[in-house]
Design a protein around this nucleic acid. Structure first.
Lengths: 210, 210
DNA sequence: CCTAACTAGACCGACAGTCTGTCGATAAAA
DNA sequence: TTTTATCGACAGACTGTCGGTCTAGTTAGG
């Protein structure tokens, strides 16, 4: 019955993760979590100070998972710049083997608050990582912009809102139509010739969040 | 005591509007609303089927207020294109005399769900309006882009996320630094010469949401 | 024309059920 | 013995429901 604090904590987080995914944050009661983990009320509140505290811990976990592998790839200067951008972005969807599921279930309409918090992590965490790569690209004469950070911020804000979110309800065709337009716009922002970033299409390959 | 259904409905919405603004959606109990309006529980649920139903009605109201005046200005072809864009955007902040307050109190951290719903209205409602103006501008040779809609979508997504939201925590200086960068990026997206949209600075004038 | 019966819409408030967070007691480990 | 983890009863709050009430207006009958 008795476990190390960290172990219990993670059990609780695992249960919450799954339940929030199924029923949303508001739709999940602490009792649901209690039952799933097989502990008593007091135990839950021994490890977490509130229900929202559980969510925050969960987000902290996501944060690490999602941005961690992205950072790692971004810092590998052996990979050519273009390739590295693609890999960083694609890492977001599958990082830790379950990034995609994370992103999937965050998009449940019930999870407004969690969703917002994750978005915040991404919009603040991803642009710095990408900007570093872009700067390298600028040095190499691949890109040209006086505002690499703000460029990345704009791009991330857009993909977060339009591609990742259910903010804009896109049919498959609408979605497909957005992609070349998006790439065209990115090309302009980065000051490169039209068509030269078409290789980025592959980032939107299957299902293609981000 | 007895009122027309519509009048009561509006009284309830007015109270909810103010209370949600002060304490957030979750932080406001139906009892708070009851008390403020001076009605009984049953009356509230006679007019609205749930608490969330109240929020949805509130958003419908915002929707009309915020996008209504924007549309009106956008369709006035007597105003030159550049000027009209500025006016449309500025209308968002003050429409109906209280658009600004709406936007202000939606940004309270408690109001994630309401915030999300409003964002959805804007990201879906504003780009079509702006795109029409941009198309006119393209015909007049002022702008040049094959993807006016997606441009506007990107711009709106960005301002919503970075300028309007508390997604990115900006100091005043950071905020000020973002503005020229933003304008530069918009210039690139719209295919105009660098510096030619600097007049848009004024949209960010005082406090400057959007 | 007047009044009694009726109707439907607005309103009331007690109540059931649920949910979160607390607390003192308890057991196990260190 | 002290610390760490666990338990479960409980207080307090909140949402949505339901049977019943009140009133304005309408219809019917005298």
């Amino acid at each position: 019955m008795r476990k190390e604090a960290m172990e219990r904590r993670n059990e609780i987080l695992d249960a919450a993760d799954e339940l929030f995914g199924q029923k949303g944050f508001d739709g999940t009661s602490t009792n649901d979590i209690l039952e799933k983990v097989g502990i008593a009320r007091g135990t839950l509140y021994y490890h977490f100070k509130s229900k929202e505290d559980i969510m925050d811990a969960l987000i902290e976990r996501y944060n690490t998972q999602i941005l961690g592998s992205a950072k790692e790839i971004a810092s590998n200067k052996n990979i050519p710049v273009h390739e590295r951008i693609v890999r960083v972005v694609m890492a977001l969807n599958i990082s830790g083997g379950n990034g995609k599921e994370i992103i999937d279930h965050i998009h449940k309409p019930q999870n407004a608050l969690m969703h917002q918090k994750i978005q915040k992590v991404i919009i603040n965490g991803l642009p710095p990582i990408l900007t570093e790569i872009i700067r390298e690209g600028i040095e190499q004469g691949l890109f040209s912009t006086p505002y690499p950070y703000e460029c990345m911020e704009m791009i991330v804000a857009y993909t977060n809102t339009v591609f990742d979110d259910d903010m804009v309800d896109l049919t498959d065709e609408e979605r497909a139509a957005r992609i070349p337009a998006f790439i065209f716009n990115v090309e302009r922002l980065l000051g490169v010739e039209s068509g030269s970033l078409m290789y980025m299409m592959k980032m939107f390959g299957n299902g293609g969040e981000d």
